[in-house]
Design a protein around this nucleic acid. Structure first.
Lengths: 363, 363
DNA sequence: CTGAAAGCGCTTACAG
DNA sequence: CTGAAAGCGCTTACAG
C-alpha cells in the first residue's frame, strides 16, 4: 500500500526511465555516483528536484541498520528545572548536529523501569547516552547485547563500558583545600547523599583534604542531603537546629550549586551574611552559581564539553559497518573505563576568610 | 544480510514452529491475538521471552509508516542557557512519554536553513513541533505537504496551521495596567525587538494600556532590544546615557525576564534600588524571575502546559490511520489558528509604588 | 484458528 | 556504465 504522496525512488526512476537502484546510487549513494553517466545523473537530478524527492529515513535505516540517531536517556524531574540536564543536552545536540546525527531524548521517572529502557533500544537509535544512570551491572551487561552506550556520571560500574565524569574526589578535595587555604578550620559538608556515586566521591575528597591538613573529621559537620535546593535547605536547617554546635562552622562545602542555594536561603533567614559571616562553596557551576547573590565559588564541570565527548565516544563505538548491535568493547580493560574530563575551581564572591560568629542566636 | 544478533520475528517463528505472521500477531498485533490459540500463544511467548525478543521499531515503522515519535525543532543558542526551551521541552517530553511517543530534538542555528528543516521531515518523525519559528509562509505551505506540524510562539502566520501562544498583547497590557494601578506614570518599555511577533505584540499591549489610562506614548521611553540578558543590559544602558531624561521613568516593563535581569544589572551599577528607586517587571516567569533579587514581578507563561498542549494538538493532526504525511487541516479556518493558553501576573517584590528619583547622577 | 504472499522504500552485493 | 534480485524486519489484507 502506497500511503503517502511523497515521491519514492521508484517514482523518480519511472519518470527518468531508469531503475530505482540507479536513482539510489545517484541521489543517496555513499559510493561515488561516477558509475552513472553525467547525462543520466543530470536527468535523475532534474526529476528529483522537480518532484522534491526526499529519501525516507526509515526505509534507509532499515536496510542500512543505522538510523544516524543517538538516544539520550535521563531522569527528567517533573516540576524541577534541571539545568544540569539542559547544559549537557546542549553539548550533545551541538555535537550530534555536527556529526550528522539526530538526537532522541527519553525521559525516565527513575532507573528501575528496565523495560522502558529496553524499549528505547529497539533499533531506532544507533547508541545511547545515559545521564546519571543507576543501572545494575547485570542489566548493564544485558543492555550491551542490544546497543552500544556510554554513561555520564554513572552511579554504578558496568564492565566493558565507558563512563564520562570529572574526578569528583579530586575536585572536592581541591575545593576543600582551597577553603582551608583561606583559613577555614571548621568546614561543614552538605552532601548529595550516600546513594549517588559522585556524591560519595565528593564526600571522600572532603575528608581527604581535611586529613591532609591535619584537621579532624567531625561527624557533626557532615550533613547528608540530596542534589536539590529544597533538600539542601531542609537538611541544613535541620542540622542547625538539631546539632547545637559548640563552635559554628565558618564555611560550608556543598555537593552542588542547588544545595548551596538552599543553604544560603537558610543563612539569610538567620540573618547571616555570605561570605562575611560564613563562606559557602558549591559544585557544578550551573547557571545557579552565576545567578546567586553573592556569586558562588564553585567547582566548574564543563557540561557542554562532557556532552560533546560523550557523543564522540559513542560514535566510536557505533560501528561504521552496519552493525548497530555489536558493541565495540573499549580496548583498555574489562572493567568500566572512566574518562575524566578536566574541571576547575571558579573563585567568586561567596567565600572569604573566616571570622568568628556569635552562636547566641542558635542557642 | 542478517546483521545483528538480535532475534527477529522469524527466529521466534522457527523456534516455535509457526509462521512469522502469527508471531507478529501475538507479540505486536494491534488486533487482539484471540485468533491464536492459547497454547500457541503461550509457546510463542515463551520463546520470545527466552530469546529476549524485542520488535525492531524501524521495520515496524516502515510497514506502518508511523514511528511514534515527534520532532521538536528549535534554535539552540550555543553558549546560552535557554530556560525557555528547557521548560517547554520538559512539558513535551512528559506528554510524549504519556502518549507513548518518542521525542527527537533538532537544533537549528537559525531559521533560514530550510533544507535542514526538510531533512528532519524524512519519515522518522510523525509530526513536528516548531519552537519560536520564523518560517516564511511559502515554506510553511510546502512543509505541510511533508509532515503535520504545530508551532509554538510562531513569528509568522502560516495558513492552515495551528499555533500555540499566549495572548501577548493582552498580557502586556495587563502588566502595564497593573503598573499604572500602582501609581506609575512614566513607564519605560524595553522590548524584544521589532522582528519577533510576540515582542511586537507586547509593545502593542504596552501602548494600549497607556492609551487607556490617558497617558501619552513617549518615544523616548521605548527601547528596542533582544530577548537576552546581555542585550537588555546594553540597550538599557545606552538609552540611559544617550537619552538625557528630563523626568526619569519610575518603572520599566521588560519584554522578558532576561531583559529585566539585564536592566537590574545596570540599575545596580548606578546604585539604584529595585523597587525603592525604580520598579521592574518582566515577562515569562522562567527560573530567572524566581532567582532574581528582588524576585521579579512578571507575566507567567505556563510553558510546561504549552508543551503538553502542543503534543496533544499535534497528535490529533497525526492521522491514526497510517498516513503520516496527510495534513489534517484544522476545521476552523483557512488561516493560522492561534490557540491561546492562559497566562497570569505573578506579583512579587520588584514592583512597588513610585517615588521621585534625583536625576543628577545622569546629567 | 493459522498460513502464504505482497509490500513498506530503501541499499547492497552480484552480474554483465 | 546500468540492471535484476534479494534482503532489511516488520504488518496487513486475503485465503482457507
Amino acid at each position: 500500500m502506497k500511503r503517502s504522496n511523497a515521491p519514492t525512488l521508484q517514482d523518480i526512476a519511472n519518470e527518468a526511465g531508469v531503475t530505482a537502484m540507479t536513482v539510489s546510487v545517484v541521489l543517496n549513494g555513499s559510493r561515488s555516483a561516477t558509475r552513472v553517466s553525467v547525462a543520466t545523473r543530470a536527468r535523475i537530478q532534474e526529476v528529483a528536484d522537480r518532484l522534491r524527492y526526499r529519501p525516507n529515513a526509515v526505509a534507509r535505516g532499515l536496510s542500512r541498520s543505522r538510523m544516524d540517531t543517538l538516544g539520550v536517556v535521563a531522569i527528567i524531574d517533573i516540576g524541577d528545572v534541571n539545568l544540569y540536564f539542559l547544559e549537557l543536552l546542549n553539548g550533545i545536540l551541538e555535537e550530534c548536529a555536527i556529526k550528522g546525527q539526530n538526537t532522541t531524548v527519553f525521559a525516565m521517572k527513575d532507573w528501575t523501569d528496565e523495560n522502558r529502557v529496553l524499549r528505547f533500544c529497539d533499533g531506532r537509535v544507533d547508541g545511547v547516552i545515559f545521564i546519571s544512570p543507576a543501572l545494575t551491572p547485570s542489566f548493564g551487561a544485558s543492555l550491551q547485547e542490544r546497543t552500544p552506550f556510554v554513561t555520564i556520571h554513572s552511579n554504578s560500574v558496568i564492565p566493558n563500558t565507558t563512563n564520562l565524569d570529572i574526578d569528583n574526589e579530586a575536585a572536592a578535595h581541591d575545593m576543600v583545600q582551597y577553603l582551608i587555604g583561606q583559613g577555614h578550620r571548621r568546614i561543614m559538608h552538605v552532601s548529595g547523599g550516600t546513594e549517588a556515586a559522585g556524591a560519595r566521591q565528593r564526600t571522600d575528597g572532603y575528608k581527604r583534604a581535611l586529613a591532609e591538613a591535619g584537621l579532624p573529621f567531625d561527624e557533626a559537620l557532615l550533613v547528608h542531603s540530596h542534589y536539590t535546593q529544597i533538600a539542601g535547605r531542609d537538611s541544613f536547617k535541620n542540622a542547625l537546629t538539631e546539632r547545637r554546635f559548640e563552635v559554628f562552622p565558618t564555611a560550608i562545602f556543598c555537593a552542588n550549586d542547588a544545595i548551596a542555594l538552599g543553604c544560603m536561603e537558610v543563612l539569610a533567614e538567620y540573618g547571616l551574611n555570605v561570605p562575611e559571616d560564613i563562606s559557602v562553596a558549591g559544585f557544578d557551576d550551573t547557571l545557579l552559581a552565576r545567578m546567586a547573590v553573592p556569586k558562588l565559588t564553585t567547582v566548574r564541570q564543563p557540561f557542554r564539553k562532557i556532552g560533546i565527548r560523550a557523543v564522540d565516544l559513542l560514535l566510536e563505538h557505533t560501528s561504521p559497518k552496519n552493525d548497530a548491535y555489536t558493541v565495540v568493547a573499549p580496548q583498555h580493560s574489562d572493567t568500566a573505563q572512566s574518562v575524566y574530563i578536566d574541571y576547575d575551581l571558579q573563585i567568586r564572591g561567596s567565600v572569604s576568610t573566616p571570622r568568628h560568629i556569635s552562636l547566641s542566636r542558635f542557642k
